[in-house]
Design a protein around this nucleic acid. Structure first.
Lengths: 196, 196
DNA sequence: GGAAAAAGTTGAAGTAGATTAGGAAATATG
DNA sequence: CATATTTCCTAATCTACTTCAACTTTTTCC
């Protein structure tokens, strides 16, 4: 399926557009193919784009002084990904965004996004809606992380996002869920002390 | 100072308005005074408003099966607070929002917010900007929670938000930072094992 | 398709932070 | 302004999860 068509269809889940508006919107996106392990955002460089995933899987992550990686966000098809702090404020990134498998993306340049929003209030509405939904979903994630045990967080994730499991390696998922790979492995194999 | 004036001044940090637009915007807000311990959002009731804090302090929190409270968000003057999941999707809330001290708020009704956004694209822009900023700040918070120790999270908070410390009781702050009150107390009094 | 690298598993030992319990300050309220 | 309530502190014990180390399985790629 034509990637440009996908983004047009995606935005119309949230707002209704004329054919002309939809094609104007789509025209601002550029199709990008990335390979596994390729970086599309890197620390110290400003994230000039946000990415809509047509197909594939990506993650954002930070690396601490001792080289340990922590996954901050995951994205498969129909999800967006970038370093939001960097993108929104156009400041240097602190995260990597990396392809976990070969992927097809639609990149939207920061400047082009501003043009879109200026050109038509409907696009402003669209970006407001996706920001709000992101906000609500992050508030749920913060709540989970603060209130649930490692095992509960894993169970919740598998039930809520089963499609992700086929695409995300365990090392990436473990740190996303706030635990080590070893501990996630034990949870998956029912080896946590006190469990049958 | 006139509360309605404050919100007009606040919005103009982000977008420029004519005097008429500013007063139209302000007119949709209602001044509310709440006392300490008063709830303005409660689980199972849909959050019909979002609240801009003129003066005072509030928190949102969830309560688990065993009655334990976890602070999800904090707000003092110039901050917004509500249960975003509930407000944005107009679904039943899962959180309480409670005044931590007597406070003056400006409440914005969900319907009135929709009217504002329809009436003038500038208001749509404003709500998009505050949602995006909230998104970026929550991404920073998730990163902190996943990568830093309890002591580092506390230190970061005191440096980044010193104004909050005067208003937020420790039991509310501790769970916001993802630790128990007892452990926060030890950190504050430098009683964490291995520290001078 | 075989060697090397990457990802996942297992178990033992260690630790950051929780729990419990009791007392001391601070704050609210009659 | 006294006492009841709430908040905060301290210390001992406990535990969910980490760390470390060695191994197995899967994936990559020449």
């Amino acid at each position: 399926m034509d990637p440009q068509y996908q983004i047009a269809s995606y935005i119309q889940r949230f707002i209704s557009l004329t054919e002309e508006e939809a094609s104007h919107f789509s025209s601002k996106f550029k199709v990008v193919k990335v390979r596994k392990k390729q970086f599309i955002v890197q620390p110290n460089f400003t994230a000039k784009k946000r990415f809509y995933v047509v197909e594939g899987a990506l993650r954002s992550f930070v690396v601490n002084e001792s080289g340990q990686e922590t996954t901050i966000a995951l994205a498969i098809n129909d999800w967006w990904i970038t370093d939001y702090n960097s993108y929104i404020f156009q400041q240097p990134a602190t995260m990597f965004v990396e392809a976990l498998e070969s992927s097809t993306l639609l990149e939207l340049d920061f400047e082009k996004e501003q043009d879109l929003k200026k050109s038509n209030p409907k696009f402003e509405t669209f970006f407001r809606i996706i920001a709000e939904r992101g906000l609500a979903s992050q508030q749920r994630r913060i709540t989970m992380n603060l209130t649930k045990s490692a095992e509960e967080r894993y169970t919740y994730f598998t039930e809520k996002y089963p499609q992700f499991l086929q695409h995300i390696p365990q090392y990436a998922l473990a740190s996303y869920l706030g635990m080590t790979t070893e501990f996630l492995s034990k949870i998956r194999n029912n080896k946590v002390k006190g469990k049958s």
